[in-house]
Every structure is written in C-alpha cells, then in structure tokens.
Design a binder for these strands. Sequence first.
DNA 1: TCCAATATTTAGACTAATCTAAATATATAT
DNA 2: ATATATATTTAGATTAGTCTAAATATTGGA
Lengths: 220, 220
Amino acid sequence: MHSFTEENYLKAIYKLMENDGPEVSTNAIAAHMNTRAATVTDMIKKLSAKKLVHYTPYQGVSLSTTGKKAALSIIRKHRLWEFFLVEKLGFRWDEVHDMAEQMEHIQSPELVERLDEYLGFPKHDPHGDPIPDAKGRLPETEAALLLSAQKGKKYKMSGVIDHHVLFLKHLDEIGLKPGCIIYVDQITSYDLSLQIRINGGKPLFISHQIARNILITSSR
Amino acid sequence: MHSFTEENYLKAIYKLMENDGPEVSTNAIAAHMNTRAATVTDMIKKLSAKKLVHYTPYQGVSLSTTGKKAALSIIRKHRLWEFFLVEKLGFRWDEVHDMAEQMEHIQSPELVERLDEYLGFPKHDPHGDPIPDAKGRLPETEAALLLSAQKGKKYKMSGVIDHHVLFLKHLDEIGLKPGCIIYVDQITSYDLSLQIRINGGKPLFISHQIARNILITSSR
DNA sequence: TCCAATATTTAGACTAATCTAAATATATAT
DNA sequence: ATATATATTTAGATTAGTCTAAATATTGGA
Ligand SMILES: [Mn+2]
Ligand SMILES: [Mn+2]
Ligand SMILES: [Mn+2]
Ligand SMILES: [Mn+2]
C-alpha cells in the first residue's frame, strides 16, 4: 500500500485542488505540508511513478482518478475517527484533529465500514465537513458564508472554514457550533459585522473576521 | 517519542523476557520480529543509546525501567483497542490482532485514558490477556493450563497461550472462550486428552494439543 | 582443553524521506 | 524584448531501517 507520507501528500494535494483549482504548485504543497519545495518535487515524482498524480515538470500536479480515490478514503477515515472521538469519547471539536491525523492511516477496509455503521453512518464530521461514503462519494452540500447572510433571515450553521484550535474554542465559548440556528438581526455595512441570535437566545455581535469563516445553509 | 519500529522492538523484548527469562538473545528477537540478527544488533544499539534497554555485546539484552514502562504502555493500548474492536465493533477475537498492531502506536495519552473509561476499565482483552493500567500495573492473575486440570473439578477459562487465528477459530467452533465454565469429566492418561463439558453442555473431547494452550483459573 | 558449530557483531550497501545549495525554467515589469 | 525576480528542479548529503556477507566471539562436545 501507500506509506503514511504518501497518504499525507495525497490528502494535501486533494485539499489544495479543492481550494486553488485543478493544478497544484510545488510551493503550495510545500507550504501546506511544512516542508521544502525540493522534497515535494521528489515525492511528486514518486507519486507520478505510481500513477497517483498527473505531473508535468514546472506545470504543477493534479490527482489521477486512483489518487483521488485514495485521498477520499483517507479523508473518510479522518472524519469518521473525529466523529468517534467527539461523539463516543467526549472530546471537544478543537481537540480531535491531531489524533485523527494518526488514525486516518490505519489500514483495514473492514474496520472503516464497521466504524461507520457503529457511528450510525454520519454524513458530517464535528466541524461540519462532509464524510465521503465507502465509494468516495461526498454528500450533497450547498453551503454559503455567514458574511453573505441577509438581515432578518434565519440559517443553520453547517460548518467552519478555519479549523484552527483557537477559532474553534472561541466559537465554543460564544455558543456557535454546527447545527445551531442563527437569526440575523442586523448587518453593519461599515465593518461588515453582524448582530445575531443563536437558537433564539441573547443578541450577539459577530465580526467580519468570524463571519467569513462560518458556513451556513438555509434553515430547513 | 519512539518510532513504530522502536516500539515494536520494545514489545518483542518484553514478551521474550516474559517467556524466556531476563536475558533476551539477538536471534530470539530476530526470529520473533521476522528480521535478521544484524538488523536487531543495530536496533539494540539504538535502544541502548536511548537507555531503553541494558545491553552487553554477546550477552543479550533486557529492558530498563523506562523501556519496560514504554513496552507496557504499548501493550495496554494494543489490548484496549482489541477490546474495543470486539465489544463495540463486533469483530471476532481472531480478527483483531492486525488492526490492534497498528492502533497500539497512536500517540495520545488522553485518548488511551478516555478509551479505557469508555470501555468500562476492562481488566482483560478478548484473549484473556491482562490489560496494564495507566501506571503499567498488571492485574493479578493466577492461571494454570487446562492440561494440568483434575478430573471431576470445574474451572473457568481465563485465556489462551496460542494466539494464532486457526486456533482461535477452532475454539470458537467448539464453544470455548474466556469466561466459560469447564467441567472436567475424564482424563485419558494415554494421550493426555480430556473429556469436558462447557457451561454444563454436551460432552466434548479436547486433545492434549489444545489443552496445553488453554488457561484456566479455579471457578469462583 | 581445544576445536568446530553456533551466535553475534561489523562492514558495506540499499531505499525512503528529508534537507541545503546550486542550476534552470517561468513569469513579470520595465 | 530583455532583464530581473520567482518558482521549480537537480545535485549531493543525511538519517532510519533494512539487508548480505564477512569477521569475531561464545559455547559445548570430544
Ligand atoms: Mn496524517
Ligand atoms: Mn474535521
Ligand atoms: Mn505494532
Ligand atoms: Mn490480545
């Protein structure tokens, strides 16, 4: 099979393709993986030899069909284990990433399917990210940013863009988490801040900085 | 921390010390790990430099206090995950070893303690092997071999010596598993076979080959 | 006690993953 | 269009883990 390192590269390339378009640059991968461009070039050549990526020197890299399948399998495992850690072991959503980063590499197709069943086939992880199914299909998700919300409407929080620990802890403190209902009472055009209520609670001010990192869907 | 490889060596040395006495030979480790003696010598030197083992060239190796602690921590994780896989995910006891072999290397003290709690602080894994506690202490276990049982007495099965898949599957088929009560009706001195009943069921013949791989304690 | 069989270590080589520094290709800005 | 800046690759080195073959130490039998 693939080494941990190869798997981590596949996942990184998948995420960069998702954000920055189909051709991923050597430097982008190096930055994302906290390594050097020369190291990335070496690994790309290996992944290319294994037909996991398409690669033209100087022109960037993209996942092949098999590479994409492998990446989705790793992401599936990562998100299922995160769900397990939060729902079964009681960890907070800001604590689980590093553990899942290790658990995603456990090799056993049977284990993944049993875990999925044990967890009740969840569609989203604790951060609201979609969990690919056994075939690598992602659940449908139409999500918008909270900063594009309209005054007077209500929405359901569906996830976050930023996954950093400090951001997640802050959301915890103010009571925002995936699934909660957000009523948008005011929008201040000057600084793009919002005044909201969560599940009909007390009014709360949300800065642009935060609003642009929160995903919402139409409530219902 | 320690690499997967180092952890696997520590565990191997622990198990060999348990079975063969305090000084473990290079060849014994090589055989147990399915590798070469020269490879073992290299690794022993590294473990020795890290003060995880005591080593005198040509004289064998033994775990230091810290090495033993590390080995017990890995064994704790291995057996807790095996318990999880059987009790929560519904795997059979002959299916879980290879998965636990990977899961035992996940680094997160908090995860281990939460898992232990979630599982109800089990004292033994699905094979009847004792689970070290958070401090590395093993639960008390006075276990004897079924082949040393006495006619007319009853015992509780507490575990197995042999852990191979085929043996475990066979035990499953005849209904023997840790926790069951074994009534010894007959002992044939010629071939050292036994006639037993499990939980008061039908009479069953057990060969010496099997009897010497089953652990028992006094029933109650 | 001594020698041959066995066990262990050393020497030298290989692969995977990483790095720094140098070379080369691509992009951008007059 | 040319030169400068940036991005990428190549060259050469390092570390962990492994191997084979050769050297050396230990052990047990005559
Ligand atoms: Mn990872
Ligand atoms: Mn997540
Ligand atoms: Mn292992
Ligand atoms: Mn076990």
